[in-house]
Amino acid sequence: MAAQQSQGIQTLLEAEKEAAKIIAQARQYRVQKLKDARSEALKEIEEYKKAKEQEFKAFESSHAGVNQEAQAAVDKETEAKLQSITSSYEAQKDAVVKKLLDRVVLVKPELHRNLKKAGQ
C-alpha cells in the first residue's frame, strides 16, 4: 500500500509539474500575442498616418490655387487703397498745414463767454 501511495504521489507531482509547464507556455504565448498585437497596431497606425498625410497634401495642393488667387486679389485691393490714401494725402497736406498754422498764428483775443455773463 505504501508503494501505491508513493506511486500516486509521484504521479500527482508529475502532473503538477506538467501543469506548471503548460501554464508557463500559456503565459509565454499570451505575452507573445500581446507583443504581436502591439506591433500590428503600430503598423496600422503608421499606415493610417501616411494615408491621412497624403490625403491632406492632396487637399492642400488642390486648394492652393484658390488661396493664391484670393491673396493676389487682396494684395491688389490693398495696393489700390494705399494709392488712393497717398494721393489724397498729397493733395490735401498743404491745405491742412495752412489751416493749422492759421489757427496757431492768427489769434483773436476775446473774453471768455462765461466772463461776459458775470460782468453784465
Score class of each variant (00 low, 15 high):
Ala2Gly: 15
Ala3Ser: 14
Ala3Ile: 13
Gln4Pro: 00
Gln4His: 09
Ser6Ile: 13
Gly8Gln: 12
Gly8Ala: 14
Ile9Leu: 10
Gln10Tyr: 09
Leu13Ser: 11
Leu13Glu: 06
Leu13Thr: 03
Ala15Ile: 02
Glu16Gly: 04
Glu18Lys: 13
Glu18Ala: 11
Glu18Asp: 13
Ala19Leu: 15
Lys21Pro: 00
Lys21Met: 11
Ile22His: 09
Ile23Trp: 08
Ala26Phe: 03
Arg27Glu: 05
Arg27Thr: 03
Val31Asp: 15
Val31Thr: 15
Leu34Pro: 00
Lys35Val: 11
Lys35Pro: 01
Asp36Val: 02
Asp36Glu: 15
Ala37Pro: 00
Ala37Arg: 07
Arg38Leu: 12
Arg38Glu: 10
Glu40Met: 08
Ala41Lys: 09
Leu42Thr: 07
Leu42Pro: 00
Lys43Met: 09
Lys43Gly: 09
Glu46Met: 09
Glu47Phe: 10
Glu47Asn: 14
Tyr48Pro: 00
Ala51Val: 15
Glu53Arg: 15
Glu53Asp: 12
Gln54Leu: 14
Gln54Ala: 12
Glu55Pro: 00
Lys57Val: 09
Ala58Thr: 13
Glu60Lys: 15
Glu60Gly: 03
Ser61His: 11
His63Cys: 03
Gly65Asp: 02
Gly65Ala: 05
Gly65Asn: 04
Gly65Tyr: 03
Val66Gln: 10
Val66Ala: 11
Asn67Ala: 13
Glu69Tyr: 06
Ala70Trp: 06
Ala72Phe: 02
Asp75Ala: 13
Lys76Tyr: 02
Lys76Ile: 04
Lys76Glu: 04
Thr78Met: 13
Thr78Tyr: 09
Ala80Phe: 04
Lys81Gln: 14
Leu82Trp: 06
Ser84Glu: 13
Ile85His: 08
Thr86Phe: 01
Ser87Ile: 02
Ser88His: 11
Ser88Lys: 09
Tyr89Trp: 07
Glu90Gln: 03
Gln92Glu: 11
Asp94Val: 00
Ala95Pro: 00
Val96Tyr: 02
Val96Ser: 01
Lys98Asp: 01
Lys99Ile: 01
Lys99Val: 01
Leu101Cys: 03
Arg103Asn: 10
Arg103Asp: 06
Val104Asn: 01
Leu111Phe: 08
Leu111Tyr: 09
Leu111Asn: 08
His112Ser: 05
Asn114His: 13
Lys117Asn: 06
